[in-house]
């Protein structure tokens, strides 16, 4: 089938402002949007710039806005969109070039919640024990691939760049609800501070957009609850 792509382009070495460029190409309906973007790059315009690596939704490189929604280009099939496809960079973070956004702020916020296992007790000679039930408690948030889709889908984040954003809170949740972790006291001040969980207005954009199917809004609510009951 013939597909018509409209792509938001911006090269600060040349352009003062972003502009749209259009491309037509033959595609298979079962192809990924990523395949079509690469075909455009390889056959029509080598200057089109995007990130990609694994091409099957696990590395989190090719997050972008496709037909108005945040998605991974490698997990979105042409047949689910139709023949007219618009592609833009994620919103709420600075654009470096074309579909490439600057993740510096995103990873700084990720780091601020201490995204690592904290337990200073000497470990046993074998594994620490954890029941299947305890393990299941935080399974959902271990799936996060740090693609940035949830954070850049959040209207609160668009309006207030001090907000940690859903992805950083999901990462905090992964440790806060791990029975083996003892880092809650170190993480909770960041999560309850001005840019923390209380900024969340439960819009559910994050949950709707997550390519891993994580219940992001639910995870944020659980962190809120944890903070509340700690204070009481």
């Amino acid at each position: 089938m013939k597909a018509h792509f409209k792509i938001k382009r911006f090269n600060p070495e040349k352009d003062r402002e972003p502009h749209w460029e259009e491309y037509e190409l033959e595609v298979e309906p079962t192809e990924r949007v990523l395949d079509a973007l690469q075909t455009i790059k390889w056959e029509q315009d080598g200057t089109l710039t995007l990130r990609r690596s694994c091409a099957h939704g696990i590395c989190g490189s090719d997050a972008m806005v496709i037909n108005g929604k945040n998605r991974l280009a490698c997990k979105t099939l042409i047949k689910d969109l139709g023949s007219h496809i618009t592609v833009e960079p994620l919103r709420g973070l600075p654009v470096i070039k074309d579909l490439i956004i600057d993740f510096t702020d995103f990873f700084a916020k990720y780091r601020s919640i201490k995204p690592y296992f904290i337990n200073d007790e000497p470990p046993p000679d074998v594994e620490r024990r954890q029941s299947p039930r305890q393990r299941a408690r935080f399974d959902d948030t271990t799936k996060c691939i740090l693609c940035g889709i949830c954070t850049t889908a959040c209207p609160v984040f668009w309006a207030d760049s001090r907000y940690l954003g859903p992805a950083a809170i999901v990462q905090a949740h992964r440790f806060l609800f791990d029975s083996r972790d003892q880092g809650a006291e170190e993480r909770l001040p960041v999560l309850s501070a001005h840019g923390g969980v209380w900024k969340c207005r439960t819009v559910f954009n994050c949950t709707d957009a997550c390519p891993q199917g994580i219940d992001v809004t639910g995870a944020i609510a659980e962190v809120k609850k944890l903070l509340l009951f700690r204070k009481l």
Binding site: R129, R135, D181
Partner: peptide
């Protein structure tokens, strides 16, 4: 075991 001690969330047997 080291990976587990670093926090890796392995699946668990009924005994943990």
């Amino acid at each position: 075991y080291q990976l587990e001690h670093l926090g890796l969330p392995f699946d668990r047997t009924p005994e943990g």
